[in-house]
């Protein structure tokens, strides 16, 4: 006789395999203000969950219950916490759990818990390499997802093995090629190049700095009004204690409007790639950078810096007028009258 497959009753209250548990209502003797109107399914599942937490039961069916709650509310951190303890206690296969998480993470990219649970699993399974491809897929759904990027950085730093790191620069270059303005990707680049030790092939640090400066200058020349690239440039210089003044020739190209007859560049200066034809100049970030160079120069540099700050305050970056005026005050004060 063919069996007709029917879904089990949706409510735990109707299920015989849960009949031994007495559901526990959320509020007893309190009539709460600002209540949430839960669906019947959510109320039912969490009533049983409270009873389970109280009894301390850790079993296969607790995994089913917590999964049910998490699917309805992935931010239920207590359900996650209890699930994790249950997994370890009953020695559930963690690779199965990880496959379930593949589905949940992409569905609920913005919750802290899906990503942290994954971390906990990885510290147990210790198989980080397949994670890289998973993360890359998740980033396709949301290229600036904070948790996804932090998770990738954690994975690299925590396991810290060469096989993991091998393709990382290539990966981030691909991401930046996709969107040159993706600040998360720029941050990732800084993280992998400068902040977590020295990688194979990167032992010559001066060479690394040269490579990064060339990369970011090229990027600025393609799209000069990109705050992410300018911040990266400053980051590289600050980190390597390279004077800003070494970039003066480069930034000056971006502080003035395009000149009418500039189409034909006679000599291509690889050190100082010029702004692209369609770029919108002058670029306030370049003016700011040049002012910083003048300020550091001191003496006659200060009035020159002040002129630039004034042009930002009154013309090119008026929303930050207060900030530019503050920079002027500070520069004048620190040099004295």
């Amino acid at each position: 006789m063919p069996t007709i497959h029917t879904d089990p009753p949706t409510l735990y209250a109707e299920r015989s395999d849960w009949a031994d548990v007495t559901p526990q209502a959320q509020y007893e003797n309190v009539n709460p203000l600002a209540p949430i109107f839960y669906t019947e399914e959510y109320k039912d599942a969490t009533d049983y969950f409270r009873a389970i937490v109280k009894s301390g039961e850790m079993s296969e069916r607790v995994l089913e219950l917590t999964e049910n709650i998490i699917r309805q509310n992935p931010a239920h951190y207590t359900a996650w916490q209890y699930r994790y303890k249950t997994l370890l206690t009953i020695k559930a296969p963690l690779d199965v759990e990880l496959r379930l998480m593949d589905e949940l993470a992409v569905k609920h990219l913005k919750t802290y818990q899906v990503w942290h649970h994954r971390r906990l699993l990885l510290t147990e399974t210790r198989k980080p390499v397949p994670e890289l491809a998973f993360i890359a897929r998740s980033l396709k759904a949301d290229e600036k997802n904070y948790h996804t990027w932090s998770y990738r950085q954690w994975l690299l730093a925590y396991f810290n093995d060469d096989e993991l790191w091998d393709g990382e620069l290539e990966f981030v270059e691909r991401m930046l090629k996709g969107d040159i303005r993706n600040n998360s990707a720029w941050h990732h680049r800084f993280f992998i190049v400068f902040q977590s030790g020295t990688r194979k092939g990167d032992e010559d640090r001066d060479e690394v700095v040269r490579r990064e400066l060339a990369y970011v200058k090229q990027s600025i020349s393609q799209a000069p009004n990109n705050a992410s690239a300018w911040n990266y440039l400053r980051g590289v210089l600050d980190h390597s204690h390279t004077p800003y003044s070494t970039l003066q020739l480069f930034v000056q190209l971006y502080t003035v409007p395009h000149s009418p007859g500039e189409t034909a560049v006679e000599v291509i200066d690889l050190e100082n790639p010029p702004p692209s034809k369609d770029s919108q100049l002058p670029c306030p970030a370049a003016i700011e950078f040049l002012a910083d160079i003048y300020e550091l120069e001191g003496g006659n540099g200060i009035p020159k810096a002040t002129e630039l700050w004034k042009s930002l305050a009154n013309e090119h970056d008026t929303i930050r007028k207060k900030y530019w005026e503050y920079r002027i005050r500070e520069a004048l004060q620190s040099t004295g009258p």
């Binding site: 600002a34 109107f37 959510y42 509310n73 992935p74 931010a75």
Partner: peptide, 13 residues
């Protein structure tokens, strides 16, 4: 009170 879409905030009452 809050409509059921606030269930996502159940752990943030």
């Amino acid at each position: 009170g809050f409509p059921s879409k606030y269930t996502s905030q159940d752990a943030s009452q």
